[in-house]
Design a protein around this nucleic acid. Structure first.
Lengths: 277, 277
DNA sequence: AAGTGGTCTAGACCACTTA
DNA sequence: AAGTGGTCTAGACCACTTC
């Protein structure tokens, strides 16, 4: 194994038709693109320890020959692994295995339900309130709405195996909100339901800090008012760049942690002063 | 402007010699590489609003012609901006401006001193303790040390304009620790000093969660014992993949927030259950 | 001196969006 | 049907690391 692809011929790739919608980068690791299949194969080899703890990868040229692809395609595959923090890359020497990546797809990150299930936990949720009201200035800016536009506001409690974990407040723009408002109250995953209705999530900006529980938080999570909570705020946009949600999740301490990989080449993380509210 | 480069001829790039060490991706945005200069120019144009709030960028081919480079180079430049969350990218339509990126270099993120100065604040620090002792199992694994190896442990208070902000506990492997131990106690930036001694930081894994202040934290930060703190743990490696520090920063609430951009194409962020200690 | 990754080019075809 | 970004190829030269 890892000498060639486990199940694919790779040379001929004409017949690619019967694949459903196949979100690129979605749940299935082995995307249709050649470089994604190479990346998936290399990831498998690395995480199973085929190159050792801090071992060196074969040269790009050698990998190109092994997989029967051009060097450019190999480099595209390796760029994926580098961004995930799996391997280093520097001029002059072969790539070195950095660590065993935390594989977590974009959709797992946005959907509490999807994330919970990927861990083998049973996700639950209860819609506490849903209302429609005029957007304030901050909401109009975040969701890029015109003055006078309305937003849909939801408050939901999220549980893992019936244990309260997080309170989620989400602001939806009208075109998304109307879909949310139609949902039965017992639908577990809003995100997945929206996707079925053509609302796609492709980009998100996250901000993480600490806040204290207000009355609602305390009541729902079963903590004291004023108790510390880990907060993740997130603005998500669709493929056209249009904002589709502005959400604020508040986790009980000790239930979750957020991880980021970062390098000279790719730095998506930043630290800000004075968390504005 | 933005039609061609502001100060560079771009076609001839033979003489590139008198540039110092020039860390790639370091403080200077316009790196020596062609695609970095294109990226810097496009970033400038986007953040100054040349393409509007949610405007569309020119086609890749048009940009290639404008800058006098190949389409591949333009795509390399655009990949940088996409990773920063500045623009979208989907097949079939032109790229769309997503937002005004939070530009923060890798070195600003790792160095409290560098970060503070980039905000115009006056960073301060006080070394509370420095000791050498045998590494425990967790430390050996994180820093990839052999059994019996020793580590250097520092405890430092960090201030902005003399206001306590953060307590930093760092574990250094021997080859870095000996350098830290030689430093005068009043050196402001360990990170910058280490860089001058040939210790380079190129990759980091960050984990963010909430903890409660212990006795030392409370005394140094002036908060109550048990008060919530925002914690960032970080393992940093050098270009060869060797760990150079394992650090744990604890911030007073409200002083900082961490931000990450994320997309279907590039996802460096993940959420974990049960923050292990 | 040899090997390796970083950068750049030129051209090709395809999948998708929009009109 | 036209335009656009996504993917892939083949080849070239360079900067850097290692021996």
């Amino acid at each position: 194994m890892t000498e060639t692809f486990t199940e694919n011929a790779m040379q001929q790739d004409g017949a690619d038709g019967a694949e459903g919608q196949e979100q690129p980068g979605g749940s299935v690791e082995a995307g249709g693109a050649l470089y994604r299949r190479v990346a998936a194969d290399l990831r498998e080899a690395i995480t199973t320890g085929a190159y050792g703890e801090a071992g060196r990868l074969p040269a790009e040229g050698a990998l190109a020959e092994r997989y029967g692809v051009s060097r450019g395609t190999v480099r595209q595959a390796l760029a994926v692994l580098r961004a995930d923090g799996l391997v280093t890359s520097r001029r002059g020497t072969r790539r070195v295995v950095l660590g065993n990546a935390r594989v977590q797809s974009f959709s797992e990150l946005l959907s509490f339900t999807h994330w919970a299930r990927s861990m083998g936990e049973e996700p639950g949720g209860r819609l506490e309130s849903l209302l429609r009201r005029p957007a304030d200035a901050a909401e109009r800016e975040q969701l890029r709405l015109d003055p006078g536009a309305e937003v849909y506001v939801t408050l939901r409690l999220r549980t893992l195996s019936d244990t309260p974990v997080m309170v989620e407040r989400t602001i939806y723009p009208p075109h998304v909100g109307v879909l949310v408002a139609q949902l039965p109250a017992d639908v577990v995953s809003h995100t997945e339901h929206l996707r079925e209705h053509g609302i796609l999530f492709t980009d998100a900006d996250h901000t993480i800090d600490v806040v204290t529980a207000n009355g609602d938080d305390a009541r729902l999570l079963g903590c004291r008012r004023g108790a510390p909570l880990l907060r993740e705020r997130r603005r998500t946009t669709d493929p056209t760049g249009r904002p589709v949600e502005w959400s604020q999740d508040r986790y009980l301490p000790g239930m979750v942690a957020f991880s980021v990989h970062n390098s000279l080449a790719t730095s998506a993380l930043s630290r800000h002063a004075r968390a504005d509210d």
